[in-house]
Design a protein around this nucleic acid. Sequence first.
DNA 1: GTTAGCACTCTGACCCATAGAGTGCTAACG
DNA 2: CGTTAGCACTCTATGGGTCAGAGTGCTAAC
Lengths: 356, 356
Amino acid sequence: MARRVRSPLGPLDLRSQAILRAVIEEYVSTAQPVASQALVDRYGLGVSSATVRNILAELETAGLLTHPHTSAGRVPTDAGYRFFVESIADAVPLPAVEQLMIRHQFGQVEFASEHWFRLAATTLAGLTRAAGIATPAKPNAAHIRRVDLVSVNERMASLILVLREGAIKQAALTMDEPEAVDQGTLNAVAGLLNERLLDRTATSAEQILVKLDGAERTQRIAQRVGERIVRILRDYDAAAVEEVFSDGLLNVMEAPEFAQSDKLRQVFSALENRAYLGELVGSVAGSGRIRIVIGAENPREEMHDVTLILAPYGRPGRAIGVVGVLGPTRMSYPNAIGTVSFVSGLMDELVDHLYA
Amino acid sequence: MARRVRSPLGPLDLRSQAILRAVIEEYVSTAQPVASQALVDRYGLGVSSATVRNILAELETAGLLTHPHTSAGRVPTDAGYRFFVESIADAVPLPAVEQLMIRHQFGQVEFASEHWFRLAATTLAGLTRAAGIATPAKPNAAHIRRVDLVSVNERMASLILVLREGAIKQAALTMDEPEAVDQGTLNAVAGLLNERLLDRTATSAEQILVKLDGAERTQRIAQRVGERIVRILRDYDAAAVEEVFSDGLLNVMEAPEFAQSDKLRQVFSALENRAYLGELVGSVAGSGRIRIVIGAENPREEMHDVTLILAPYGRPGRAIGVVGVLGPTRMSYPNAIGTVSFVSGLMDELVDHLYA
DNA sequence: GTTAGCACTCTGACCCATAGAGTGCTAACG
DNA sequence: CGTTAGCACTCTATGGGTCAGAGTGCTAAC
């Protein structure tokens, strides 16, 4: 005889919540509508199936469950998952063994942020039965770490720009000089620029450039190369999201709800739509909190059958990226949320190293 | 009354060949088994459907066509496609307009081989209704173009290695020196290495390193950095295929033969199996010729419903990569072959620029 | 060698009946 | 008043049966 206890989460007594949880757990593992009898059998609820049916009916009027048809079991709605997710805000942490395993993997890979985000996506795909998603940590203002100029021929050179954030930019330069520009000259130019521009951002580099001194010709070329550098930095700073990497789409394909490839196609086309993902990821990066978008909560029609769990990582004001998973709405939320949280925390640490 | 003329391609008279071609053309565009009457109606063969049926029966005993069931039209077999492909060795060149369009696109992108191969895959996906595949041009022996060292702290530095082939390699170095190593020292080391190692491959760089001279400390550090560089080059040279990029998988998903996502999944998992693709691509790179693998000609079970058309590009002895498409066996071969040929030719030109 | 004609075969759509799953409701119970 | 047993009801999934249509293979005539 459980007394009705109002939960802080809504007008639902604890037993109803327990049953909702049970329905979700069962449905997640079987992918079949859940019958009242099955709940009694497998979850030791201590009541009869008739009672459970009454409660299921309540949960249905509350909009948390549905019926595919009259004589079928119950299936969670998006709202049902949402309620469930809110109720487990105290996410399950990832088991220590797996934490260690992941840390080890990251230890194996080279110290370059470029590798990390890919590995993050792969790791997430492996640990959840969903696709992993990750973007590189993008600085809000990139810092120059190294400028290098390599002669291609008398009139052309390659500019190589290394950023503190780990990215490397490359550009072709055409020299607008009356005389040939040899590697020696380029070395002088690069030396001057390295000395003056180390750790500068686009804006501060621009200020330095106007008061550049040095041998007349060197200075003139440096000025022009510097302008190009500033332009590259500005483009880089302005780009919303550089790249969205995903791995383990096969996991999603395996889910029975995507057996008819039609729905699957929609998801894929949404994923290939980098603009949309960029936008979403941008909003998450700004928010600073883990974000969960369940099925039809997503404004995009194509995403109505999947859930996105995204978390930002990095340090606001320095560099931020996003990691997360994409899977069927019928996913193990506690596991997925725990995993995403852990990986984003790990990425935080890695980004800190870059700025240590 | 067409006389029976033996074609150079096999024991098949010209009319039979024409009918085979018609069946393939029709099937490619409709994805439905082709009836004898449909051929007469749409291809002006000048004979009755009964005659066509006789020939279809011959083509079937020859193994070039099949029957899904008794009262269905004909469908080409893999052998049928193979015969057809051999008979159009004189591939249809890509229309001039499209050639120009593609050239324009490549002109837009930066002068870096890294961008080219991705663009090639995207272009191929756009022009054929299949997925585009491309690998970067990998040199059989990479050449050093530039060495750069950036101090991280007293004991650590970043090594940045630019290759003539366009790739940039980055590595973390731990300095094993009693005294702190500052940027000035690193500059001296980099200067020495650049002077001596320009345009060297792993093997020739190794020879140079043993007879290195210069200030004692500089020399010692240069020696050690040099060894690391040689190791990086060797790893790079040894890697079979660096990366396989694919685009337009959605095209393949749209084909009706992949409506049940099961077959599709197989293809995807084969594509995610980089090892296999690498192996295949490696064999194509060596052969120097366009290679077409139709359905069950592929040893991999998962690839029995798709065709791969792959062409190497670049210059043997310098750098080679592979471009191609993956689509359903029911694909427009003349178009696909023409497109792949053109793109590989274009990539040849681009690689030549790197070595000009 | 070609063709008209026709028998034959197989598919796919449709309908129907039936078994089974699971609910919703009602009435009895503590 | 909440819980429960019992039962009628509903809907799906399955299998069998029929039928029209598509397209072939064969035969006999040209």
